[in-house]
Design a protein around this nucleic acid. Structure first.
Lengths: 190, 190
DNA sequence: CCTACCGATCGGTAGG
DNA sequence: CCTACCGATCGGTAGG
């Protein structure tokens, strides 16, 4: 499937440029140039610029949704689930750094149905995340904290992990997972 | 000084729109419309779109630089200084929510000398922040943590505080300051 | 995959 | 502060 592969190349290049300059500031001619082709040729593989963004965001969002589903269904206690969620973010961020950055910064440029779908996924994800965090608090694994604020803080760090990782690309994945768990989980007794 | 005041109105409106749609996706016609005037009339008060962004970013950055200077020179121990820094972020975020969001999301659209100046300020600020954080660790106020990662995490939360605050606008400033201090400072003994 | 090209929109200027 | 307007660039299409 040469066509599919070509489309994936374009998406990879687009993700890199969208991240670097932003979606609106990246032109189809920029993408074409980075692909060594002319702008109109891109349209043999994709249908529009906004489709590029939508597919990039939706596919990485699905990775998080799937990961959340697995964590929820796993036979673990709430604290272990929270650890697994943190590791999920670390892993996806390391493997798909550019796409993750779009999830943080460029989703505002989605329009119409895609924007609605995306926000629904985001709300579901955050609701599930909060549920696990609150279970941790209720079961006494965590310090008593404002759950909303704690979730906001943890997710803020995880959302910006891509920029830290980009400046420290040689870090070991397992090490980073453990450091993030240690940093983000305010355990009661140490 | 009606002219000055008019310019400030334009900057306030621009900050709101830049935040909502992004700098590149906001046209001068959008800003003019929100001001109930025609786009060319804006140029009686400002000189260019990029100047708008530059002035918004530089003036809010100066608030942080000034606050950092005061904290550094204050007769406080390192832990108290860290607390003061967190409160500084909370205060500026509450008072200038839109401009703070630009500091997080739109500085990438600075070009030329303004981009260089901005990055220099950012580097200085983070170096000072890290110095205070490392002093806290060395003096035994904080848990032993990876200082780079801890700073990254604290700043990530503080950078995104504007979005949390926008969803919880009725929070009391003093309460929020105290909650953020409690949440972000991993003290040794509680 | 390319050349030629379109209508829309952009930041900004001239002139009053 | 407005009307009239400019050159540049945008996403995208026609046709091969």
């Amino acid at each position: 499937m040469e066509k599919l592969s070509r489309k994936e190349q374009i998406k990879t290049v687009a993700a890199r440029l969208f991240r670097k300059r932003g979606f609106k500031a990246t032109s189809m001619r920029d993408i074409a140039k980075a692909m060594d082709m002319e702008a109109p040729s891109l349209y043999n593989h994709i249908s529009s610029k906004r489709q590029l963004l939508e597919e990039l965001l939706m596919s990485i969002a699905q990775s998080f949704i799937l990961g959340m589903k697995e964590v929820k269904e796993a036979p673990l206690n709430s604290l272990e689930k929270l650890e697994r969620l943190i590791k999920l973010h670390v892993d996806i961020t390391i493997d798909h750094t550019d796409a993750v950055s779009l999830l943080t910064n460029e989703w505002v440029h989605l329009e119409g149905g895609a924007a609605l779908d995306f926000n629904a996924l985001k709300d579901d994800y955050e609701k599930d995340f909060k549920g696990i965090l609150m279970a941790c608090i209720k079961e006494g694994h965590l310090k008593e904290v404002n759950a909303d604020l704690a979730m906001f803080s943890i997710l803020s760090t995880l959302r910006w992990l891509y920029s830290w990782y980009s400046k420290n690309p040689n870090v070991n994945k397992i090490d980073l997972e453990q450091q993030m768990v240690k940093l983000l989980i305010p355990t009661r007794n140490e």
